[in-house]
């Protein structure tokens, strides 16, 4: 885990929404082409950690670095322009707009021709090409998630952040979605995601972060965490 510095790093993250801190000295990082997964029990601050990295939380301490440059002070919008992309857990598609328009909106900050990227997203999620004229609100849960991820990929990001991408979808769809995510990672994009389905997520993870009460409890490769008996017992149900 040492050697070259990770592409995206959140260090000593401490902060919360209102008065009390939810995160306490939390460290997270992910390199290019890697998949990093944050797991942990409910209320462990997993999503909060994501938001902290994306600038949607007031940090009291700590910093976020992207490609070695400090971006702690940037707004989420500015981070999008710097090549970060975020897929929220809920309300992550424009329900009244067609699939194609959703993807177009994803490419909003791009001034160049994005037909290539559109083609790549359609290659990655063929069903979206089929349903391109349909309103995103009419799609099934799994298809919506594909739209959401597709929208986030339209900026050609260097980092893709996913907040529980498999929440509420069937196991088959989940596996399918994970396959796609691996594919995305292979293209050199750094992927940071929060997952409820810890076992399946760690299986595909290069790095795993187990958070408990806003602190790092275990940090290791996905395989190592899967093999760690304590982690298995406490977080993976034996």
């Amino acid at each position: 885990m040492n050697g070259a510095e990770d592409y995206l790093i959140g260090e000593h993250l401490t902060g919360g929404y209102g008065g009390a801190n939810i995160l306490h000295d939390c460290n997270i990082g992910v390199g290019r082409g890697e998949i990093a997964v944050i797991v942990g029990p409910n209320g462990a601050g997993k999503s909060t950690a994501m938001k902290a990295v994306f600038g949607m939380l007031n940090l009291r301490e700590g910093s976020v670095r992207l490609d070695g440059k400090d971006i702690t002070g940037l707004t989420p919008q500015a981070r999008v322009a710097k090549g970060m992309s975020f897929v929220p857990q809920n309300h992550n598609v424009f329900t009244s707009m067609s699939v194609e328009e959703n993807l177009e909106m994803g490419a909003f900050i791009r001034r160049d021709d994005f037909t290539d990227t559109l083609g790549q997203v359609f290659d990655l999620f063929p069903i979206l090409k089929e349903k391109r004229r349909q309103a995103a609100g009419e799609l099934s849960g799994g298809q919506r998630q594909q739209v959401a991820v597709g929208r986030a990929l339209m900026t050609k990001p260097k980092v893709l952040m996913l907040d529980e991408p498999t929440a509420g979808v069937s196991p088959i769809v989940m596996n399918e979605l994970f396959d796609r995510i691996i594919e995305v990672a292979k293209s050199g994009i750094a992927i940071l995601m929060v997952e409820q389905n810890a076992r399946q997520a760690l299986r595909i993870a290069d790095k795993g972060y187990v958070l408990v009460q806003g602190r790092n409890r275990y940090t290791d490769t996905g395989a190592a965490l899967m093999a760690n008996p304590e982690v298995r017992k406490a977080f993976l149900g034996g």
Partner: peptide
């Protein structure tokens, strides 16, 4: 139009519109 679509997107889901870089 691009501007018109961004208006619809903003009206549909303000947070996501911000995440998409719509001003």
């Amino acid at each position: 139009s691009r501007a018109g679509k961004s208006m619809r997107a903003f009206s549909d889901n303000e947070d996501l519109a911000l995440l998409s870089g719509i001003n």
